[in-house]
Design a protein around this nucleic acid. Sequence first.
DNA 1: GAGTTCGGACTGTCAAGTGG
DNA 2: CACTTGACAGTCCGAACTCG
Length: 347
Amino acid sequence: MSSDQSNSSDDQAQPPQPPAIPPYPPQPYNGAPYPPPPGYPFYYPHPDQNGGDPNAPNGPPGTYMMPFPPPGLVYAYPPPPPPTQGYAPFPPQAPASVTRAKRKQVKMACTNCASACKRCDEARPCERCLKYGLAESCIDGVRKERKKGIKRGPYKRKNKQVAGDVPPYAGYPNGEAPWAPPPEQQNGGAPSAGPPIPPPFMPPEGYYPYYYPPPGTYAPPHDAHANGEAQHGQPPPPPPPPPHPYYPLPPGYPQMAMYPPYPLPPGHLPPPPPPASSDPADPKNGPDGEAAAAPPPQAPEPPRKKNAKRARGGQGEDGAGKAGKKAKHGEDVRNVVETHPPVIAAA
DNA sequence: GAGTTCGGACTGTCAAGTGG
DNA sequence: CACTTGACAGTCCGAACTCG
Ligand SMILES: [Zn+2]
Ligand SMILES: [Zn+2]
């Protein structure tokens, strides 16, 4: 919740955050053009790129997320002309700098912070323990020794990228562009004859391409099986939401900045207005917040699947690495820590 | 609303594997 | 032996939950 950000209940005060981008003002749907008013970009930050990280130095995501983007809108960048209203556009140079800063971890969290899964610092007692009056129990944990003798099999050698070499965009339906350039171009050789084929369509880092079917057609509903990801042999695959159901834009296509007025088809709900929030920078103050109760027809890929009821014993994608530390949560250790009433005002 | 819990994304580190 | 790769072990974000 915003409690983490706003009142920093148990974390240290966050550094001053960049100015939040004002939310897209709620507007009742009245058959008017679906997209945001002029000046509102259809930026769609990649979930892993600064998605939802208000602490990211590149600024909060704060991007207008559409339940489903309007057909005809082909691509989500570059930024439109500066808005006439006071709403901040995405920084023009954003695509180049959307690389999210890595989260910095302390080498060893104190036992209290570790058991509470909260941020620690190098000091002992750490800031959080001081805040909660746990200074005397603020000690470093003991790091387990890494397992040895684990066989790995042959390594996959990554073919090194030469400078200027453009990696294939991994977001295509089959992982490769359907219009691969001829071999001579791929090898960097001089184009033999005919018009040069434009380079692969590459979105700036952190952005999805959007290519929408012509008016009159609609994006297919999300289908976990169609994504080619959820089939690990398990019958009910935990639905990793597909990146998006649309198709990449072939090179040479003109970009459409905004699609023409387009009334919603009958039966489609208008986009839910963003909830009136006191914290515009809060990443979940987007459509994500409502997603649990009433998922919008074509919700874009959530930055993180957090809406499901908590299920115990899940494994992350790096879960293999966590196999040995499953006793992490769900033990009483935490009670010793966080059940402790905050003694902030004890003085 | 404030505080707590904890799933899982993310990071750091280092052993195993590879190439020169 | 230096470097790369892969995965273990850890941190901690942030949503869900609980409590007063
Ligand atoms: Zn600590
Ligand atoms: Zn501590």
